[in-house]
């Protein structure tokens, strides 16, 4: 069976290492996409993929993306929780790929909560 071996990984290894330390423990923000059965059925995978592409586009090295299970509000999926160091977490609901990109650009990068998309501010933390 052919094993996936990727030469390009070696090429970028040194380049990435210079900025990668931010990603390991020095993150400024964390986005948790709720990936329960309800979230996945409602489009959570596309939300996370759009987020990853936008993070790469903006070259953000200090944003952690992770997943969690169902938060109990299945009808409001896809959902994501944004946590910025030193600020209360914000839970966003009824997300689309466009909305999550806006959350990244307006909330994470500029620091302004998007009230129109937010369900709650100051709910539970995931760490």
């Amino acid at each position: 069976m052919k094993k996936l071996k990727i030469g390009d990984l070696e090429k970028i290894r040194e380049k990435v290492r210079r900025t990668a330390n931010l990603r390991q423990g020095k993150a400024r923000a964390k986005i948790t996409v709720h990936m329960g059965t309800c979230g996945i059925a409602a489009g959570a995978r596309e939300i996370l993929s759009a987020l990853l592409k936008e993070i790469e586009k903006k070259k953000l090295n200090d944003v952690i993306v992770t997943t969690s299970g169902c938060a109990g509000l299945c009808s409001r999926e896809p959902m994501a929780t944004v946590e910025i160091t030193g600020r209360p977490p914000v839970k966003y609901v009824d997300l689309t790929t466009e909305k999550i990109k806006k959350v990244l650009n307006v909330h994470i990068i500029k620091g302004n909560i998007i009230n129109d998309y937010a369900l709650a501010i100051g709910s539970e933390r995931t760490h």
Binding site: I12, V16, I55, E56, L60
Partner: peptide, 26 residues
């Protein structure tokens, strides 16, 4: 067939996080 094993890839990356955006793209 083909197989992707992240344990092997992590070894090849030699400390670079496998969840790095550029790595994920590749």
């Amino acid at each position: 067939s083909f197989v992707l094993d992240t344990k092997i890839l992590k070894k090849e990356l030699n400390g670079v996080p496998i969840n790095n955006a550029e790595v994920l793209n590749i």
